[in-house]
């Protein structure tokens, strides 16, 4: 069991390392492709060749690539001083970069944006887990019924309607639609939890529904399919032969068998979830990680882009490890197999 855990953690670190290499190298591409000096991306100003050269030297852009990579990577762990002399900037650990355009460390921006994204994701997750799994179980138990067929239709719709469309429909309906729907005539903006918990939740509801709609659909389909498959397993026949109530057979034996699959599903598409978050934050203008990343990309603020990409990879990897751990708890066969 310990070996299994150690294995996964090591694997996770490996993935992170590769991710850092990829992130770093791709974004070295940028200046070469655009034929604009690296300095521009760090200082945010149009620099003259002489200034650019000076900046390059200060920041070490003229050093070999692998040395730059190492400086960047080690800076993440230990903190780093960017530039030197009077205008040096100290970037405390973990140093994920420093945005000169905004004059803030990327880490600081991430810390500020993270709670927003967390609020969005956790709320949506509660919705889609409870809703999706419940709907899937009921649909499978009452196969062929109105509920089943209805949920299949809604699921198919759900996977066909992307967040940006449902989001726009929601925003339109809630802010400018018919008067009986216009609950958010003042607009939908993010209110921090610490400032006003009630408003925080109320304003997050449309965002949660928007993000969750697609994912609930996916979960319903998967849970239903997994339940139907499970219900044809031998141990279900045994459970029936023991004289258990139908409710127990489905709800205890069936559901328990399906839970690891659902958990795995949760871990599978975290990259896609992040994509959904980016779109939702862009559309609703919520200042989360997605919005931060997008803004960084549109302003070509290289440190921000690199920092958020690496942080996102980190989050996904951590979430995957957590999911794997949950799986081991839920499936005893894995524990003993290693």
């Amino acid at each position: 069991m310990i070996r299994y855990a150690a294995n996964r953690v090591l694997g996770a670190l490996g993935v992170l390392l590769v991710a850092s290499v990829v992130t770093f190298s791709i974004f070295q591409l940028l200046p070469r492709v655009t034929k604009v000096d690296m300095a521009f991306y760090y200082t945010g100003r149009n620099t003259s060749p002489a200034q650019a050269a000076a900046v390059s030297e200060r920041f070490g852009f003229d050093k070999p690539v692998w040395e730059q990579y190492w400086t960047w990577l080690s800076g993440i762990v230990t903190g780093r001083d960017l530039g030197d002399g009077v205008s040096a900037v100290h970037c405390a650990a973990p140093c994920l970069g420093y945005s000169f355009r905004q004059n803030r460390s990327v880490t600081e921006m991430l810390v500020q944006a993270f709670p927003v994204t967390l609020s969005i994701v956790i709320g949506a997750a509660v919705l889609w887990l409870a809703g999706g799994v419940a709907a899937g179980v009921i649909a499978a138990a009452r196969r062929g019924s109105w509920f089943d067929r209805g949920s299949t239709v809604i699921s198919l719709l759900g996977v066909s309607i992307p967040e940006f469309f449902s989001g726009m429909l929601l925003i339109y309906a809630l802010t400018a639609g018919p008067s009986w729907l216009r609950w958010y005539s003042g607009g939908i903006t993010y209110v921090p939890f610490t400032q006003d918990p009630v408003r925080w939740a109320v304003n997050l509801l449309p965002v949660w529904f928007c993000l969750a709609f697609l994912i609930t659909a996916v979960y319903t389909r998967w849970t239903r399919a997994a339940m139907l498959e499970t219900m044809s397993e031998d141990f279900i026949t045994t459970a029936k032969a023991k004289g258990l109530r139908r409710r127990t057979v489905v709800g205890k034996h069936g559901l328990r068998a399906v839970i690891p699959t659902v958990v795995t599903l949760a871990g599978l598409d975290l990259g896609a979830l992040l994509g959904g978050v980016i779109i939702v934050e862009y559309l609703f203008s919520f200042p989360g990680l997605g919005r931060l990343a997008y803004d960084g990309i549109s302003t070509k603020d290289l440190p921000v882009i690199m920092g958020t990409t690496l942080f996102a990879a980190f989050l996904i990897v951590v979430a995957n490890v957590v999911v794997d751990a949950c799986y081991a708890i839920l499936d005893p066969r894995v524990r003993h197999g290693g």
């Binding site: 397993e233 031998d234 141990f235 026949t237 045994t238 459970a239 032969a241 023991k242 034996h253 328990r256 068998a257 839920l330 499936d331 005893p332 066969r333």
Partner: peptide
């Protein structure tokens, strides 16, 4: 009336 089946590995619930 009780019944036992051919494959005890698949006939017993793996998680209980």
């Amino acid at each position: 009336i009780a019944m036992i089946f051919q494959d005890p590995l698949s006939s017993l619930h793996p998680y209980f």
